[in-house]
Design a binder for these strands. Structure first.
Lengths: 133, 133
DNA sequence: ACGTCGCTTCGATGGATGTCGAACATCGCA
DNA sequence: TGCGATGTTCGACATCCATCGAAGCGACGT
């Protein structure tokens, strides 16, 4: 048995045509998850623990699961790290313009919120999502 | 005191600039409310009880309240009837293209679900599309 | 080998949510 | 004035949801 990176059940992602609009809207209606999506939109990939959100690891894991099962993100395992990426192309194919428009709407609301995205100084930097609990 | 059509506290609507994206997304993430919005998009105004949804009157009232407080619809009282209308212009002003894009996404998923609601508006309000990797 | 790191799963918890039925208020009509 | 239509509010209820802490598991460094 290969002891490689495949012990746990392979991460389940919905196919592009299976992506449900209500799931997407629901996933996007949470500030923490919106922050994650926004960060992911500025970077091709990122490890789970490096997002500028202020929640417990278990909570973060839950949010990633919601995002993944909604089809918004994909996750890839590498060693003991899990990298997430926005399924921008799939989303664009399934719901043209949706992601851009929603993200633009959020930008308009909280303009210039995601600090340090792309600079690698994300850990510790807080964004606008996370204190509403 | 004129005991005319203003006994109940006037219906509270958020100002255009007060409309919250998360409230809108959450309101739209419910199938019943999505149906209401879709119907309203094809008609300028409609009485509450005339929507093709299959829920109890009290439940419907709840959904209208959610929609109104999210800023998606406005409600006007006339006699003992309450007419609802989509705040399309306000939404467009606040979040350009959002409503059209979300509705188009839903049309794409379940085309022809709402009886009598033919896709009326919705053409080309797309914002800067095309960017994914 | 042992401990640490990264992340998940489990169990619990408090709050929000969708749903209903019953009761209430307003208006129009006979 | 009484009744039916329209729609709301209230109370109840089951479910979902975001959150946390504790425990577990695989990978890696010392």
């Amino acid at each position: 048995m290969p002891r490689s990176t495949r012990r746990r059940p392979a991460l389940a992602h919905p196919a592009t045509e299976e992506i449900d609009l209500f799931d997407v809207l629901h996933a996007l209606s949470d500030p923490t998850r919106m922050t994650i999506v926004r960060v992911l939109r500025a970077e091709p990939e990122r490890a789970c623990g490096t997002f500028p959100v202020d929640v417990a690891p278990s909570t973060l894991s839950h949010h990633f699961k919601v995002l993944r099962e909604s089809g918004l993100i994909s996750q890839r395992e590498e060693a003991n790290r899990r990298f997430s990426a926005l399924r921008a192309a799939d989303l664009e194919h399934r719901f043209p313009g949706l992601l851009d428009t929603v993200l633009a709407a959020h930008d308009r609301t909280a303009s210039g919120a995601v600090s340090g995205v792309g600079s690698g100084a994300g850990a510790g930097a807080r964004v606008e999502g996370g204190e509403e609990g």
